[in-house]
Computed example of a mutant assay.
Amino acid sequence: MSYTGDVTADGPADVRELPGLTISKIEVGGFGNNAYLLRCRETGDGLLVDAAADAGRLLGLIGDGPISAIVTTHRHQDHWMALAEVTKATGAETVAHPLDAPELPVPVTRPVEHGGEVTVGAVTLDVIHLRGHTPGSIALLYQDAHLFTGDSLFPGGVGNTQGDAARFDRLYTDVVERIFDRLGDETWVYPGHGKDTTLGAERPSLSEWRARGW
């Protein structure tokens, strides 16, 4: 079966096999959060994007394979409710932007900034700081083709900025300059909630997003 990114609460993971990386997506918790397990195909090392909830399900997804890092995309509680338990069980390094790190329930052992990198085995992920949804929201980019956006970019728009025009302008500008202006239409977007999308599917709506202000 080909990967679609369509998952449901308590349903199975949807798995995408890339030449260097396996991506497994599940939905956890009461807010429909997505969690992603990235595993290097060369070394077997793993990285979890957002230990959002349901620690037992996340640990089941991780299984017996090693996991060296847990990346939290931003400070909102629904994205880290299982972080302490999964960190304790796995001994994984905790990764987040320093502006959001103080709000997390465990110390961040590896703070990352815009332009930095996170590795999982032989795989390198680029860190993109997207300011606005929270001060320290980050996205992770693999090979300019696979983008994990947390709550900063979804099908149909950028993340919630609570009606704050300045925050919306900052997030919209970052998303356009740091994502759409840099990456091609084929880039696949893995968001923090709901269905996946591509930059090509969203690009025609950018002016609409700017005009409506959300």
Results as ranks from 00 to 15, higher is better:
residue 97 H to T: 06
residue 147 L to N: 01
residue 142 Y to V: 09
residue 185 D to H: 01
residue 161 T to W: 09
residue 103 E to G: 14
residue 11 G to N: 03
residue 28 V to M: 09
residue 48 L to R: 06
residue 75 R to S: 15
residue 167 R to F: 02
residue 127 V to W: 08
residue 186 E to T: 13
residue 194 G to Y: 06
residue 69 A to D: 06
residue 37 L to G: 09
residue 134 T to M: 11
residue 170 R to M: 13
residue 76 H to A: 10
residue 123 V to S: 00
residue 196 D to R: 05
residue 160 N to H: 13
residue 143 Q to P: 02
residue 5 G to R: 09
residue 147 L to K: 05
residue 53 A to E: 15
residue 127 V to F: 08
residue 169 D to P: 01
residue 32 G to T: 02
residue 140 L to C: 10
residue 36 Y to R: 05
residue 93 E to Y: 01
residue 91 G to L: 07
residue 59 L to M: 15
residue 213 G to M: 10
residue 5 G to K: 11
residue 4 T to K: 05
residue 143 Q to F: 00
residue 83 L to E: 12
residue 156 G to R: 06
residue 205 S to P: 00
residue 103 E to I: 00
residue 7 V to R: 12
residue 137 S to T: 15
residue 206 L to F: 05
residue 83 L to C: 13
residue 102 P to H: 08
residue 28 V to N: 10
residue 103 E to A: 15
residue 58 L to W: 09
residue 126 D to Y: 00
residue 80 W to R: 08
residue 181 D to I: 01
residue 158 V to C: 13
residue 209 W to L: 03
residue 9 A to T: 13
residue 214 W to E: 14
residue 174 D to A: 07
residue 108 V to G: 10
residue 185 D to V: 00
residue 164 D to P: 05
residue 95 V to W: 03
residue 20 G to V: 00
residue 172 Y to A: 02
residue 97 H to D: 14
residue 158 V to H: 04
residue 23 I to N: 03
residue 177 E to S: 07
residue 72 T to G: 04
residue 169 D to I: 00
residue 155 P to F: 09
residue 153 L to A: 11
residue 37 L to S: 09
residue 41 R to S: 10
residue 66 P to D: 09
residue 18 L to P: 11
residue 201 A to D: 14
residue 189 V to G: 04
residue 15 V to C: 06
residue 39 R to S: 12
residue 17 E to H: 14
residue 213 G to S: 08
residue 55 A to E: 13
residue 214 W to H: 13
residue 76 H to K: 13
residue 26 I to S: 02
residue 29 G to E: 08
residue 129 H to R: 10
residue 164 D to L: 04
residue 121 G to D: 12
residue 203 R to D: 11
residue 72 T to F: 02
residue 64 D to Y: 05
residue 114 H to Y: 12
residue 99 L to T: 04
residue 119 T to D: 12
residue 186 E to V: 04
residue 152 S to Y: 02
residue 198 T to Q: 03
residue 148 F to H: 01
residue 116 G to F: 04
residue 7 V to L: 03
residue 121 G to T: 13
residue 176 V to C: 15
residue 103 E to C: 13
residue 149 T to H: 12
residue 67 I to P: 07
residue 27 E to F: 00
residue 76 H to E: 14
residue 183 L to A: 08
residue 158 V to I: 15
residue 40 C to W: 01
residue 34 N to W: 06
residue 135 P to G: 04
residue 8 T to N: 07
residue 179 I to M: 07
residue 95 V to T: 03
residue 99 L to N: 12
residue 155 P to M: 03
residue 180 F to K: 02
residue 196 D to S: 13
residue 43 T to Y: 02
residue 87 T to I: 00
residue 91 G to C: 07
residue 25 K to N: 06
residue 173 T to E: 13
residue 76 H to N: 12
residue 106 V to E: 07
residue 10 D to L: 10
residue 146 H to V: 01
residue 61 L to G: 05
residue 32 G to F: 09
residue 5 G to A: 10
residue 136 G to E: 11
residue 54 D to Y: 05
residue 19 P to Y: 10
residue 103 E to D: 15
